[in-house]
Nucleic acid binder design. Sequence first.
DNA 1: CAATGAATCAGGGAATTTCCTAATATCTCC
DNA 2: GGAGATATTAGGAAATTCCCTGATTCATTG
Lengths: 216, 216
Amino acid sequence: MRIVIADDHSVVRSGFSMIINYQEDMEVVATAGDGLEAYRMVQKYEPDVILLDISMPPGESGLIATGKISQDFPDTKIIILTMYDDDEYLFHSLKNGAKGYVLKSAPDEELLDAIRSVYAGDTYVHPKMTDVLVRQFITQDDMMEDNTNPFKLLSKRELEILPLVAKGYGNKEIAEKLFISVKTVEAHKSRFMDKIGLSSRPEILEYAIKKKLIEF
Amino acid sequence: MRIVIADDHSVVRSGFSMIINYQEDMEVVATAGDGLEAYRMVQKYEPDVILLDISMPPGESGLIATGKISQDFPDTKIIILTMYDDDEYLFHSLKNGAKGYVLKSAPDEELLDAIRSVYAGDTYVHPKMTDVLVRQFITQDDMMEDNTNPFKLLSKRELEILPLVAKGYGNKEIAEKLFISVKTVEAHKSRFMDKIGLSSRPEILEYAIKKKLIEF
DNA sequence: CAATGAATCAGGGAATTTCCTAATATCTCC
DNA sequence: GGAGATATTAGGAAATTCCCTGATTCATTG
């Protein structure tokens, strides 16, 4: 199995190279430090698998590279390797032709499993993100697009209250801001938490930032 | 030369381990996935050098860990390993006792050089950041009396708790994370709120973001 | 050595939040 | 017009937080 590694961190390139070359069925034929170089390496060596770090500068060239490589070299399976367990990145990666999605925090074994899976023609997604994927798949008929879009998922009041909760305001303060009772705030809050699947304040904050409902 | 590696990315831990163990004069004696574990590993193995990723959760415990380790184990040289070529991080790292500062995008040779340098008693800073350091040194007067600098204003515990409060964690959760009592968390919290002049959760969040104590 | 700051823990009482269930008034969509 | 979603409010009990005061230990500093 011939493999190319693309990551802007030298450490990660070396690390992977050593881990992979230690496997009997794998061999690193080239490494790249950015998206362009990655494309050239694929062009030159036509590897079985390429590991791509999505967050490579400049811009989003990891994603761009994914698209170009999967289009021009469909036989080279692409595994996205990233620090972020972000839904959006996952979706975009898969839409751009990636066959695998692995977090850098995952143990080595998982990475090697992922490589073998995509080489065998399967798709590998990090377990933590699979349920997001499944939910997206299940409701893809009626909601066509965007069942993760808070603007379609939540009511006006809920959209008004969520950012305030995220910013750290208490129920009482929110009630005063919106001229409604504390009990009403509680009701809206627990409803949107149910809807989205949030169960704590940190999760609400993270969600609000991810969905750009608040800015800093 | 006995070395400990602390990084929340499994890939980086494995990568480094292999690179370092390949050197004849170096040996990785332990690895850690977060700041607390890093401290315990240093405590247990008292290595010559520890490589610390600064962006390890929870909070900014990479920096906190730097302070604690350099204080309790001055013989263990600390090299900060980070993705960010951020001035602030560099300054804070050095002030907290780090002896080296290396970017993950640097080539392996540089990392090995850095390890050997700090082991020999020198300080190693990534070349690109040296000029920043020099400029800061030249105009060091204005930073001297910086009463807005949280790292000078707050204690280590307070610096550890503030980001967690900002992220929305409750006192109880923070107490569990840090293995201290709820009452202690309350005490630290109200103390740093007094010190800085914060009187609500939203203000804490805003402050934490402005001072880069948390990232999104 | 005394003073200070830091970190730890505690008690008590008030305020707030959380978690239930439950009811009513709009409003829109078919 | 009626079904269903949305907005509003309520009550009560348990959990949590907040706001005081106060105390101990340890390290540093004057």
